[in-house]
């Protein structure tokens, strides 16, 4: 059987596509349940019954939900996200720049948080029970317990108000040099890093400790291997599956969960766009944002699962 791994990976991708289809159905259904009527909100004071009926027909809101769902889905597949209700612009244009901003923030945060988290997770597992391990673990528990808006607010208070090192708002548009980039991103990145690394450190530590309990680790020790070699060579390769999943789960937060951080720092990202869309009942925009979040989430989880499949030595020949 040459293609056992290929089959498993393809199967996993198939599951992702199916999940995505189900998600699209749920997202569309959920937006229908939103209270308030778009047409009435759009027309405001001027809403006469005739005007409402006319606009309804013009916006194609009279056809059954299932027909609209199918049309919307086919549009999505072809890259057509529809027109925004609120300002009559293509949704794709509105999202484009904002998504890039969010991704940029996510990329910077990932580049800092993931290596840091892996390092701390692995070293605390290596020196389990030591003073270092206890200090780091305690710190992490404290950080997890503090809500992120508090971390963000404290960061603003310390760095922007008292120390006056950094701007309180993060306007990504006026970045011209690397120094400016650092300044603009510093606070959102610190806040987000705190939120996502705490989880990753704990999961990495747990996965490595679990792997260190295996008999082959004891065997390596009795072969005279040093502690570093035992952890990096024997324990870590067998902990990759769970670590990849922990990292993926944490990173997915950078896409959908950044809303609080984007709001506090007034960062023009996609999460903030979605909140604005909710207040104007801009259904196509909400649906598109939701689909992007879900897609990002599924993509990360799928990548993690594929890594787990590839790292399973039983599937190697």
């Amino acid at each position: 059987m040459p293609g056992q791994i290929t089959l498993l990976v393809l199967g996993r991708l198939g599951v992702t596509l199916l999940t995505l289809l189900i998600v699209s159905f749920v997202v569309f259904g959920a937006t229908l349940l939103l209270p308030g009527d778009v047409v009435e909100i759009l027309l405001g004071q001027a809403a006469t019954p005739e005007a409402v009926a006319g606009l309804r027909e013009a916006m194609n809101l009279d056809s059954p939900a299932i027909v609209r769902y199918v049309q919307w889905l086919f549009g999505l597949i072809q890259g057509d996200f529809g027109m925004s209700y609120a300002n009559n612009m293509p949704v794709a244009d509105m999202i484009g720049g904002r998504l890039a901003n969010t991704l940029r923030l996510a990329a910077v945060t990932t580049a800092i948080a993931v290596p840091l988290a892996l390092f701390l997770g692995i070293t605390t597992a290596m020196f389990r029970g030591s003073l270092y391990d206890r200090i780091v673990t305690t710190l992490i528990v404290s950080i997890i317990s503090v809500p992120e808006f508090l971390i963000a607010t404290l960061a603003v208070l310390v760095f922007a108000v008292w120390l006056r090192w950094l701007p309180a708002l993060s306007l990504a548009n006026d970045v011209n040099s690397f120094g400016q980039l650092l300044k603009v991103f510093a606070m959102p990145v610190i806040t987000l890093s705190c939120v996502i690394s705490a989880q990753m450190i704990r999961m990495t530590r747990a996965a490595v400790i679990e792997a260190l309990k295996m008999p082959y680790v004891e065997m390596a020790l009795l072969k005279g291997a040093s502690r570093t070699r035992i952890v990096l060579h024997h324990a870590l390769p067998n902990a990759i599956g769970p670590i990849a999943n922990a990292v993926a789960l944490s990173l997915s937060y950078l896409l959908g969960g950044v809303i609080i951080v984007e709001t506090i720092f007034n960062y023009p990202g996609i999460a903030k766009l979605m909140v604005d869309a909710v207040s104007t009942r801009d259904l196509p925009l909400i649906q598109s944002c939701a689909m992007i979040f879900c897609f990002g989430f599924l993509l990360l989880i799928t990548i993690a699962d594929v890594i787990a499949i590839l790292s399973n030595p039983r599937l190697r020949r």
Binding site: M214, P215, Y216, E218, M219, A220, L221, L222, K223, G224, A225, S226, H234, P237, N238, S311, P313, R314
Partner: peptide
């Protein structure tokens, strides 16, 4: 002690199936 393990004194485990790292 690490220097002695494997060269002066070596170990054959009860369950070899568990004592081999599945990844290598």
């Amino acid at each position: 002690r690490q220097k002695l393990r494997g060269t002066d004194v070596a170990y054959v485990p009860q369950s070899a199936a568990a004592a081999f790292n599945p990844s290598y």
